[in-house]
């Protein structure tokens, strides 16, 4: 028996919004420790890794490890049927071929349940090595989303250059070029507005704008985003999900032909 309850549907709706543009389907691996989803996008250029910890759920029971393959488009449709302040319970029997989403209104007067067929997904699971990154940038997630949107107008690719002075985002194409420089915040009054750079070595890497823009769909989950970079390895874009866990996107850098 698997049962996981959250007192508020909003967070689950935001999580689905953050992954459904990149992934059509995914396997949710459920265990005592929580729920994990790891999946590559269709073109296998990026990887999404979602971790939700069991102790942050309002109720969590997982008698046996369970892998549930879900169509994320269908799951998003079902979650749209929940009001933001509804309690959500996800339930499945052991070895079941369906999962049930139950929504309960705050006054307990409306209860709805939606059953969804599970899928058998033959997905590759990739091992992500522990890496000490040369540069780690923390910045407001809205600012990152804005920069990705603005620079995508100029080129398919964006160069991110990080030094101890700051981080520079650049794009150039037939229309012209764009550069946005952010200096490290000197005086942190509000932590969520700060730009903080931890640098061991300067890094310059090039990434496809369309994936970065897809990652910014997670912006409503967290005020801050963390970018971790080292030469010649995938970028990590991480959004924390309050005390529940995190979503990390990995993106392979472009390399010169």
């Amino acid at each position: 028996m698997f049962e996981a309850r959250l007192m508020n549907a909003t967070i689950l709706k935001k999580i689905l919004d953050a992954v459904k543009d990149l992934l059509n389907e995914g396997t949710f691996d459920c265990s005592d420790s929580g729920i994990q989803l790891q999946a590559m996008d269709n073109s296998h250029v990026s990887l999404v890794s979602l971790t939700l910890r069991s102790d942050s759920f309002d109720k969590f029971r997982c008698d046996r490890n369970l892998s549930m393959g879900m169509n994320l488009g269908t799951m998003a449709k079902i979650l749209k049927c929940a009001n933001n302040d509804d309690t959500v319970t996800i339930k499945a029997q052991d070895n079941a071929d369906t999962v049930t989403f139950m929504f309960e209104s705050q006054n307990h007067e409306k209860v709805s349940d939606y059953e969804m067929k599970l899928m058998n997904l033959d997905q590759e699971h990739l091992g992500i090595p522990d890496t000490d990154y040369s540069c780690v940038v923390r910045m407001p997630s809205m600012e990152f989303a804005r920069i990705c949107r603005d620079l995508a107008q100029f080129s398919e690719s964006m160069v991110i250059c990080c030094t101890k002075e700051g981080v520079k985002f650049s794009a150039s194409g037939d229309l012209g070029s764009a550069n946005v420089k952010l200096a490290q915040t000197s005086n942190v009054d509000k932590e969520e507005e700060a730009v903080i750079i931890e640098m061991q070595e300067p890094v310059t890497l090039t990434f496809a704008c369309r994936y970065l823009n897809a990652f910014t769909k997670a912006t409503p989950l967290c005020n801050q985003v963390q970018l971790s970079m080292s030469a010649d390895v995938p970028l990590v874009v991480e959004y924390r999900i309050s005390d529940l866990g995190h979503i990390r996107y990995y993106l392979a850098p472009k390399i010169e032909e």
């Binding site: 590559m40 073109s43 296998h44 250029v45 990026s46 990887l47 590759e124 699971h125 990739l126 091992g127 992500i128 090595p129 496809a208 390895v233 995938p234 990995y250 993106l251 392979a252 850098p253 472009k254 390399i255 010169e256 032909e257």
Partner: peptide, 12 residues
């Protein structure tokens, strides 16, 4: 050139 993510991370 755009490499795949699997060229960086090995299969588990």
């Amino acid at each position: 050139m755009q490499p795949t993510i699997a060229s960086f991370f090995k299969k588990d």
